[in-house]
Amino acid sequence: MKDFIDPILVVVLLLNFVALGASRLRTLIQAVAVQGILLGFMIVMAHGSFMIWVALMAGATVALKGVVIPRMLFHAVREVVIRREVEPIVGFVASLFLGAVGTALALLFSKTLPIAHDHMSSLVVPASLSTVLTGFLILTTRSKAITQVVGYLILENGVFIFGLLLMEAIPFLVELGVLLDLFVAIFVMGIIIHKISREFSSVSTSMLSELKE
C-alpha cells in the first residue's frame, strides 16, 4: 500500500501548482478540496491496515477537508464575492516560479535532514515542506480574505502530510482535536469574512489596513 503514497504525493505537489496558478476562486478551492481527499486516502495507505479508528480518521479528514470546508468556502464566495477572480499581488507566472523555487528549496532542505529510509517514502518530507511553503506563498501574495483562508488550508495540509510519518505517535484523540480546531478556525474565519464583506463591501484584505503605526 505504501507504494501508492509517492504517486499521490506527486499529485499533491501538482495541485500546489494548480493552486498557485489558479486565477478563479472556484479552481483554487477545488484544488484544495482534492488535496484534502487525497490526504484522507494517504492516511489509510500510510497505516497499511484497516482499523476502525484509522477508517474514522480518514473519513473525518475526507469529510472535513474534502467536503465540508470547501462547501463552506463556496458558500462564502457565492454569498459575498462580487468578483470571482483571485486578485494576486504577485502575478501568476511569478507565483508559479516562486512555487517552483520553494519546492526546490524544500527538496534541498529535506536533504540536509536525515531521513529514516526504511520507514516511509522519501518524498513525504519534501512534499510536506513544499506544501507548507505554497501555503505561505498564497497567504502572502493573494489579497482576498478567502484566498488567505485557502492558503492556510494548504499550509495545514502540508503539516498533515508530515503527520503521515507519525501515525503511531499521534493518538487518535489528538488528531481529532486537531481537525476540530481546524474546522472551528475555518468556521470562525468564515464568519469574519462574512462580517468583513458587510462592513467594507469587499473582501480584499487591502481594505484591512486601518490599524497601523
Binding site: 497567504l139 502572502t140 484584505t205 489596513s209 497601523k212 503605526e213
Partner: peptide, 13 residues
C-alpha cells in the same frame, strides 16, 4: 507595521 497582513506573514516566513 503598516497594517498589511501580507507583510506580517512574510516576516514570519
Amino acid at each position: 507595521q503598516a497594517g498589511n497582513i501580507h507583510a506580517y506573514l512574510l516576516y514570519i516566513v
